[in-house]
């Protein structure tokens, strides 16, 4: 899986939680949770979905590295050793 594919997976899972999300309106370098209005339950569900689809573990201590869309994609790529 390459980075564009990871990004597509992330967006797809975000849309499952927030169906109203418009990808074109998402600023990739701005905080994701504010833009998509994810509460902590949404956030946990989002991470569980990524965990299940990509088979990566995401410790709670790493949440600070997943603030923006770009960071999230980079983090997952690193975990997948791309």
């Amino acid at each position: 899986m390459n980075k564009p594919e990871i990004r597509a997976t992330v967006i797809a899972e975000l849309k499952r939680i927030a169906p109203e999300l418009e990808e074109s309106e998402l600023a990739p370098a701005k905080p994701l949770r504010d833009q998509v209005d994810l509460d902590s339950m949404d956030w946990l569900n989002f991470l569980v979905a990524l965990h299940e689809r990509l088979k990566v573990d995401i410790p709670e201590s790493d949440y600070a590295r997943l603030v923006t869309l770009d960071q999230t994609v980079d983090y997952l790529a690193a975990k997948l050793r791309l």
Binding site: M41, L44, L47, H51, E52, I58, E60, S61
Partner: peptide, 17 residues
Amino acid sequence: LEAENARRPLPERLLMA
């Protein structure tokens, strides 16, 4: 909570709520 969640698999993590 931090310690608890560190030992729990992701789908079983707890929220402060």
